Computed example of a mutant assay.
Amino acid sequence: MPLYSDPAFFQLLADSHARLLGRPLVPQDIASEDAAEWLYEHAPFAVLAHNTAADPVFIYANKTAQRRFGYDWEEITRLPSRLSAEAPNREERQRFLERVRRLGYESGYKGVCITKTGERFMIEEATLWQLIDDGGKLHGQAVVIPRTRDI
Rank of each mutant, 00 (worst) to 15 (best):
Q141R: 06
L103F: 10
F121I: 00
R101F: 02
R120N: 08
T117R: 07
V144T: 14
C113F: 13
I114A: 01
R99Q: 11
K110I: 03
D133A: 06
K137Y: 05
Y105I: 03
G140Y: 00
S107L: 04
L97S: 04
V144N: 00
G136D: 10
R95D: 05
E125C: 04
Q130H: 08
L97V: 01
L138I: 09
F121N: 08
V144H: 00
K110C: 14
Q94M: 06
V100Q: 11
E98M: 08
R95K: 10
S107T: 15
R120Y: 09
Q141W: 15
G136V: 06
E106H: 09
R93C: 08
K116P: 01
R99F: 12
F96W: 05
R99G: 07
G108T: 09
G118L: 11
G104N: 09
T117I: 05
K110W: 04
R99V: 13
L103C: 12
Q130N: 12
A142D: 01
A126L: 03
V143N: 00
T115R: 13
K116Q: 15
I123Q: 03
I132M: 08
I145V: 15
Y105S: 14
D133G: 08
E119H: 10
M122S: 04
R101C: 01
R120G: 11
L97H: 10
A142G: 03
